[in-house]
């Protein structure tokens, strides 16, 4: 009889130790330079940290990349930046594509036709547009089917590849090309979609929110996802200097501020159990995060103080909810 039980299972709860940075420098880089990501694009950093974790844990990643900045910038024929197997299919189907490859892995393994016996992990990689919006259905289906893969969303909070249009990941009042701050409407009226909780609601074994500024936490979570059997969802903060109108050198600083202001809390959900990984002792006001970015510039005009207050309330409400979730 073939396997019956398909229940998601998180296989390891062992304390994960990320080797010190110096040790990591001797490992293979998974992505080559020469990619065309913008100067200061933190997606490049995210990819490198992903591979550092994978190499440290002994996994080779097999990646399906949704259409987006990373996809476009890393695979311009005849060059590829990828040193691992990689596929781009379309915008909205990274999850379906990678789970097809994962199903192929299972089938070919059964038939003894696998070309390599190395430890592999399947990864769907997409921006917020490919995750929160157009790829949402494919992502949800793949989670429900319980494939063994990691879904990585590098969330730069808008459609940057196509010219900074709003997505459902764009925060309230950010100015984008399709919801610009004008005289009547002050940027995006709606708050950011709360994707991690939606992912967690699928009952998948592991969900986490990461920021590249907190690289130790980042790599620890990535290794956890690697060791998880079943689907994981990783929501990663990704500064976009161009789209956010931020300084190229401040990408990591903004990532730190996002965490320190509770704009981007670091948490994880292990088999349904929520845990905040970092609670800032002296939480900074969100204005510290906003003022570094041109997309929020209009909020600082006299008379717009209430916009900042409202965004602060969004951030506080999210934090309160996280604290409650942690108590569950």
């Amino acid at each position: 009889m073939a396997q019956i039980s398909n229940k998601p299972k998180f296989v390891t709860k062992d304390e994960i130790k990320v080797p010190p940075l110096k040790e990591l420098t001797s490992l293979r880089e998974g992505i080559a330079p020469g990619h065309r990501l913008c100067t200061g694009c933190v997606a490049g950093t995210i990819l490198r940290q992903m591979f550092m974790a994978a190499e440290a844990a002994g996994y080779t990643l097999i990646i399906a990349n949704a259409t987006g900045c990373v996809e476009v910038c890393t695979s311009i024929y005849p060059h590829t930046s990828w040193k691992v197997p990689w596929i781009h299919n379309a915008f909205e189907n990274a999850a379906a594509t990678i789970t097809g490859a994962e199903a192929a892995y299972k089938a070919l393994k059964k038939k003894g036709l696998l070309p390599s016996d190395k430890k592999v992990k399947f990864v769907a990689l997409a921006g917020d547009g490919g995750t929160y919006d157009i790829g949402f259905q494919s992502l949800s289906g793949a989670f429900e089917r319980n494939h063994d893969f990691i879904y990585v969303c590098y969330d730069n909070e808008a459609y940057m590849n196509t010219g900074i249009q709003r997505s459902s990941a764009t925060p309230r009042y950010a100015s984008t090309a399709t919801q610009p701050a004008g005289k009547v409407i002050p940027g995006k009226p709606q708050p950011k979609k709360w994707m991690p909780e939606i992912a967690a609601a699928h009952g998948i074994p592991y969900v986490a929110q990461l920021a590249p500024s907190h690289f130790n936490d980042f790599m620890k979570k990535f290794i956890k996802a690697l060791n998880t059997k079943g689907p994981s969802y990783l929501n990663i903060f990704c500064t976009c200097p161009r789209g956010w109108r931020a300084k190229e050198e401040e990408g990591i600083l903004i990532s730190k501020l996002a965490v320190e202001t509770n704009y981007w809390p670091l948490f994880e959900v292990e088999e349904g159990k929520w845990k905040i990984n970092y609670k800032p002792k002296n939480r900074k006001p969100v204005v510290e995060f906003l003022k570094k970015q041109g997309r929020f510039k209009h909020m600082f005009k006299p008379g717009n103080e209430h916009l900042i207050e409202e965004l602060q309330r969004d951030v506080d409400a999210r934090w309160e909810r996280l604290l409650k979730l942690e108590q569950l």
Binding site: I31, A32, P33, G34, H35, R36, T74, S75, I76, Y77, P78, H79, T80, S81, W82, K83, V84
Partner: peptide
Amino acid sequence: ITNPGSSAEYKT
């Protein structure tokens, strides 16, 4: 593309 990491040839 069968030459992994070949973007290094492109000098950004």
